[in-house]
Design a protein around this nucleic acid. Structure first.
Lengths: 193, 193
DNA sequence: CGGTCTCTTGACGGAGTTCAAAGCTAGTGG
DNA sequence: CCACTAGCTTTGAACTCCGTCAAGAGACCG
């Protein structure tokens, strides 16, 4: 469990074993069942979250119950509502588990102290945040300009691994199209091949 | 011109006059005419940009010539393709001037050295970047979930000052709807009041 | 003063949404 | 481990709303 996280750090960073140990020693373990919420809109996001196994999603809800998904977080990725976490203000998003998941959590206080003590960790964290910002921007452009076909094609290219793990209605909720349209697109794609 | 920038820094930060002077002494002045490009997709974004006066936009182009606008930058704001700037890779976006504009530019080398020399500037820059990321995320949610009416209403609330300065086709390009639909929405809104 | 860009409007076509029903799958609980 | 059920997928029909095409009037700039 924890070793999965430590291996991840060894692979992705050049942190020392001592540092890695220090980081994971402050982690809180947590499991989520399928469909269980990590937190709901209105609450404050109090933890950094690393997904060891499983799959989370962060999404917003419309008054009529529609779910619009901003991001999926499969194993060996981080997730969080950065805005709520940084400012400690109520979040407008929800996070729940698409699959049964194992998580590591850090309180903001703990993680902040790690960031000051381990500059290399800070640099790594900043890289991750930047990458997230960039892909968010690309995604906004796609949302504004692409047809449903292009959106789906884009999704398949970007997340081939997730395709089989997600209910179609979530893919639709991620792409911002209706389930019906998603089916049409997939139908058309089958005929082409 | 430059004083406008220095006043901005005095107001928004607690930087010393010496620091402020150091920052502005490395700035390059630049003017853009209406519709003039700051850079085009395929080029590398080599400068930090502060808008003293005027109005810029950053946008992506579709093969058929459609312009999809990611962000407007009026006076006393910063703009940039962060992804291209940070990694020094070709950008997929364009930046041009909606109005005649006066800019300050810093090369990446110069600005990086300022960031190391003036920690407070670094902190300020990080705040700006975060804020940008957060609003980008909120915007993605809107793009995915809102109706044209809601998108327009949202725009009016968020940028009341920009409304009269922008051609309608750019507002449409920002909201991801057609000019025709935008007109319909505005028509309906007139009738309601 | 000419020309380009902008805004507005109309008609039309079609793509996407909504509603509904049916069969199937997979997760749950006994 | 099996049976049941809730949820998922697929499909159809009808409709709505948005986009495309087109034309004309007006505003602004050079």
């Amino acid at each position: 469990m924890i070793t999965a996280f430590e291996n991840y750090l060894r692979q992705e960073t050049s942190l020392s074993d001592a540092d890695i140990h220090q980081i994971s020693s402050l982690a809180i373990r947590r499991k989520l069942r399928r469909n269980e919420f990590l937190f709901r809109e209105g609450e404050v996001c109090r933890h950094k979250v690393f997904v060891i196994s499983g799959l989370l999603r962060i999404f917003g809800m419309t008054p009529d119950g529609g779910e619009h998904i901003l991001q999926f977080s499969p194993e060996t990725t981080w997730t969080i509502d950065a805005e709520s976490y940084d400012r400690q203000t109520p979040s407008i998003y929800n996070i729940d588990a698409v699959e049964p998941s194992e998580l590591l959590l850090w309180t903001k206080a703990d993680f902040d102290s790690l960031l000051t003590r381990i500059p290399q960790l800070k640099k790594f964290a900043e890289q991750l945040i930047s990458g997230n910002t960039y892909s968010g921007r690309r995604r906004l452009l796609t949302a504004l300009s692409a047809t449903p076909e292009q959106k789906y094609e884009d999704f398949v290219q970007t997340f081939p691994r997730l395709l089989s793990r997600l209910p179609l209605r979530m893919i639709a909720g991620y792409l911002g199209i209706s389930l019906k349209t998603l089916n049409r697109v997939r139908q058309a794609q089958l005929l082409r091949s």
